[in-house]
């Protein structure tokens, strides 16, 4: 059981560090969504089922949908789920570490 907990926490840390280093906005949102899902499993291991339900609905559901809607409104993704990198077209890159 302890090994399972430590495994989950290590995945959580790796996802958090990956959010900082991924250059693409869409990929960063997907990594953030997966870290929310792992967090929901951690809540179950800590014996709080109400927190797990809330985290799954809110973190992996509502917040990630809000991020996708934002990226769509600023036209960084089109309907085929390809990322349009508008800033790279204009010549300067805004995605930095």
């Amino acid at each position: 059981m302890i090994i399972f907990k430590i495994f989950l926490l290590v995945i959580l840390l790796i996802c958090a560090i990956a959010v900082a280093f991924v250059k693409d906005n869409l990929a960063a949102v997907v990594v953030y969504m997966s870290s929310s899902t792992v967090m929901a499993v951690v809540w179950i291991v800590l014996e709080s089922p109400d927190l797990a339900i809330t985290e799954a609905a809110v973190g992996a559901g509502v917040t990630s949908v809000l991020f996708f809607v934002t990226l769509k409104k600023i036209q960084m993704i089109d309907v085929n789920l390809n990322t349009i990198d508008r800033d790279k077209k204009e010549g300067d890159s805004h995605e930095e570490k």
């Binding site: 958090a16 959010v19 900082a20 906005n25 960063a28 949102v29 953030y32 870290s35 929310s36 967090m39 951690v42 809540w43 800590l46 709080s48 927190l51 973190g59 917040t63 991020f67 934002t70 990226l71 805004h94 995605e95 930095e96 570490k97």
Partner: peptide
């Protein structure tokens, strides 16, 4: 991080850390 979307994600991760400490 200079990108606004990454800043907002960093804020959420910071809050998740605090909730893990509290629980």
């Amino acid at each position: 991080n200079r990108n606004l979307i990454k800043k907002i994600m960093g804020l959420n991760i910071m809050d998740s850390g605090m909730y893990l400490l509290l629980a």
